[in-house]
């Protein structure tokens, strides 16, 4: 536990000194300014998508930046010959980046929806759960991808289609297309929760069972992502050192 706690502390300190908190604040300010230009009546429709996008930037892309810093500084080489366990390494990344992403997006919701509409019509529990699942999925997926690359340029090319794939369940959940297999993408369940936080499940353009299945698949996706992340760590970080 001491190793996990000290690694979480180190990751937060690293993220602070590398300017990740300033970048997160910048994203939040942009979202808040934009949302203050529109009528609050549209918030339930646009906020889930914006929150999801903000979380993706702060988790999927920030984990890539963090791991690239660790690779360029060579510290991963030092960590793999220390008693730090892979679970503690991944756990610290999940906790520290989820914390950063969630305070950023909670601030967005507080300074837009709550500021202008109040707490009415919003389910905070579902919102936080949706944010949590989104963050965990994105951190794990970001790690699995970035572990294979040594520079941001190499990462950006495959990251674009992956980011689009992560947003794809929105097409089905919003009723734009009728293609249930899109819910296999783990962010689908997180999207359901984020939408559900602002609107009743029964009002969704897809059957309720599909929404519930999407949430279950997202939870399973986190488990699968974690197992894959552990394997990725061994193959690309330990044996690649």
């Amino acid at each position: 536990m001491t190793r996990l706690l000290s690694t979480i502390r180190l990751d937060v300190l690293q993220q602070w000194r590398q300017g990740f908190y300033y970048a997160g604040a910048f994203v939040a300010v942009i979202f808040i300014v934009v949302l203050h230009q529109v009528n609050p009546a549209v918030y339930p429709g646009v906020l889930p998508g914006l929150v999801l996008m903000g979380l993706m930037i702060t988790t999927f892309y920030f984990i890539a930046g963090l791991v690239l810093f660790e690779k360029s500084e060579g510290v991963l080489q030092a960590l793999v010959v220390s008693p730090l366990r892979v679970d503690e390494y991944l756990g610290a990344k999940l906790v520290s980046l989820t914390f950063l992403a969630m305070i950023e997006q909670v601030a967005v919701v507080l300074l837009t929806y709550v500021w202008r509409v109040g707490f009415a019509g919003m389910n905070i529990g579902l919102l936080l759960l949706g944010m949590l699942i989104t963050s965990l999925v994105n951190v794990l997926l970001g790690f699995i991808v970035i572990a294979r690359f040594d520079s941001i340029n190499e990462f950006l090319l495959p990251s674009a289609p992956i980011a689009m794939l992560l947003l794809a369940p929105f097409l089905h959940l919003s009723g734009l297309v009728n293609f249930p297999p899109l819910l296999l993408v783990p962010t689908g369940g997180a999207m359901v929760l984020l939408q559900w936080a602002f609107a009743p499940l029964e009002t969704f353009p897809v059957p309720v069972w599909q929404s519930v299945a999407a949430i279950a698949l997202a939870v399973i996706g986190i488990g699968v992502g974690y197992v894959l992340s552990r394997r990725t760590f061994k193959t690309f970080i330990v044996e690649g050192s």
Partner: peptide
Amino acid sequence: FEVPNHYLKLTGLENLNYFRSL
């Protein structure tokens, strides 16, 4: 290791204190 590998934004003491905690 041959190539020094440290957290460059951390001080020397912070680097040692972190690894010491492991």
